[in-house]
């Protein structure tokens, strides 16, 4: 039997599910892994939901729990296949006859982001979600200055990956 709490949780989650999808997109490389991480984030959100007091937006609260799950709590299941090397190979092949169409560039960008480490991905994610440095530093637990410094390093790293 579904309780009232479940109903309100599922309603909010269904509405905001793209946040979870986006985190999965950055942290996984295939559909199976995407679904696995999606499920774990949902479980962690549900477990933490009784403590959600509504003093922040549901979406903001989701960023925290979602990133915590992707970076720290989630243990990759056996089904998860690493396609990192495959991606790199693809990247190398495509990088040579460089095509400047936007779609091509986006594909390369996503591949490059996949090569970043977990913390760098979190910074990129929050940046893409248009979060300011105060929010980024609060979510990660680092100072605002360091969030800025790190973000600049990530940008440089991405440039290096894209233009070796």
């Amino acid at each position: 039997m579904n309780t009232e709490l479940e109903h309100s949780f599922v309603g909010l989650l269904e509405e905001n599910q793209n946040i979870v999808h986006k985190i999965c997109r950055l942290y996984t490389n295939n559909q199976d892994a995407h679904n696995d991480l999606f499920q774990e984030i949902t479980i962690q959100l549900w477990k933490a939901f009784p403590n959600f007091r509504g003093d922040s937006k549901f979406s903001t609260w989701m960023y925290r729990v979602g990133l915590n799950t992707a970076i720290t709590l989630y243990r990759k299941s056996k089904r998860t296949i690493h396609t990192q090397e495959f991606d790199n190979l693809q990247h190398k092949i495509k990088a040579e006859p460089y095509d400047d169409t936007e779609e091509q560039q986006l594909k390369l960008m996503y591949d490059a982001v996949h090569q970043l480490n977990d913390i760098e991905k979190a910074l990129v994610f929050l940046y893409l979600e248009d979060k300011n440095y105060a929010e980024i530093s609060e979510t990660l637990g680092i100072s605002e200055v360091n969030a800025r410094v790190k973000m600049n390093r990530v940008k440089t790293k991405l440039k290096t990956i894209l233009n070796p």
Partner: peptide, 11 residues
């Protein structure tokens, strides 16, 4: 241990 802490605190 709480998933609603910031990333560093949780770790």
């Amino acid at each position: 241990i709480s998933a609603t802490d910031n990333v560093k605190k949780l770790m």
